[in-house]
Design a protein around this nucleic acid. Structure first.
Length: 298
DNA sequence: GGTAGACCTGGACGC
DNA sequence: GCGTCCAGGTCTACC
């Protein structure tokens, strides 16, 4: 089975894949050249399907051995288009970036889209698992969730999808805490799964909802385990860039760039991008930082 | 609204 | 190998 997707504007799959670390988190797996990925997904309509996504003419090509009925195919197609951000319009951001040498590269590289998981639920869980830990810890926790609670692929049971809310809602809190090693985050993830599975939360509605960013942020902050950093990160994944995801790395970047490596706080980071309006998050994320260049010999 | 302490794990470090 | 310290955001209680 093959599905070809075309973007509504200039598009680069390798750029989307390398936009942030998501491709390193299960059930994503990065292709050898870094310009493609594979993923395993449990569809609402029933089947578990594995597929690869490779670059195609201004878009992407999905390939899978799975056979799907029309409903499953429609669901898969919609989810992959969401993951790839094929229809995001970044023309206003590019227009603003043309006047800033530190962002001169973004339009040429088609930067701006961030790789997403198939569901908002998966992205919220993963984002909670990025907080107060190392990146290696996040990779380990996400892999643990997939290994313990994800539905297996029929043809290759070693490969599993990210667990649905219904599957995670059945999880034993102590297994989450001790075996999967989510630690104190376990009750946050469990509560999120249970409320989502029960229909109390409709996270997927955020994909299409037309809501002011401030209102969406309030709803995100109301989730246990989601604070200002996680909310800003999730807003970016949902296509709202009005907030900078300020973590300890942001302090290093901004301090080195504008404050001579002196200790700074949240206010200084926010002030640095205050002029970027609805594009603050993207301007921060794709800024050509001196800190990383000079600390990696670039 | 702002702040202090607790949460949990893994990694670095010293012995 | 063992113990200690620290980094990483968010929550809760308190002022």
């Amino acid at each position: 089975m093959k599905l070809q997707f075309s973007a509504s504007s200039t598009y680069s799959l390798p750029t989307v894949i390398s936009s942030h670390g998501w491709v390193q988190l299960a059930p994503f797996s990065r292709g050898e050249n870094g310009d493609s990925f594979t993923y395993c997904l449990e569809l609402k309509t029933g089947p578990v399907v594995a597929f690869s996504v490779t670059p195609a003419e201004n878009g992407a090509l999905l390939s899978s051995n799975g056979r799907l009925d029309d409903d499953a195919l429609a669901e898969l197609s919609a989810k992959v288009q969401w993951m790839l951000g094929l229809h995001q319009d970044l023309s206003e951001f590019y227009a603003a970036a043309r006047g800033e040498p530190k962002l001169a590269h973004v339009e040429g590289k088609a930067q701006g889209r961030l790789l997403r998981s198939a569901t908002v639920f998966e992205d919220v869980v993963k984002t909670i698992l990025t907080t107060n830990t190392t990146w290696s810890g996040t990779i380990r926790m996400v892999q643990g969730l997939v290994d313990h609670f994800g539905a297996p692929l029929p043809d290759d049971p070693a490969r599993r999808a990210f667990p649905t809310p219904a599957r995670l809602a059945q999880a034993d809190g102590e297994v989450l805490r001790k075996t999967v090693k989510l630690g104190y985050r376990a009750p946050y993830v469990l509560e999120l799964a249970q409320r989502t599975a029960a229909g109390e939360l409709d996270l997927e509605a955020w994909k299409t909802a037309v809501i002011p960013t401030a209102d969406l942020r309030k709803q995100l902050l109301a989730l246990k385990g989601v604070g200002p950093y996680a909310a800003a990160s999730l807003l970016m994944l949902l296509g709202h860039y009005d907030f900078v995801p300020v973590d300890s790395w942001a302090f290093k970047l901004v301090s080195y760039e504008w404050h001579g490596s002196e200790p700074i706080g949240q206010k200084e980071v926010e002030a640095a991008f205050a002029d970027w309006g609805q594009w603050k998050g993207l301007a921060y994320w794709f800024w050509d930082w001196r800190y990383t260049q000079e600390n990696q010999g670039g």
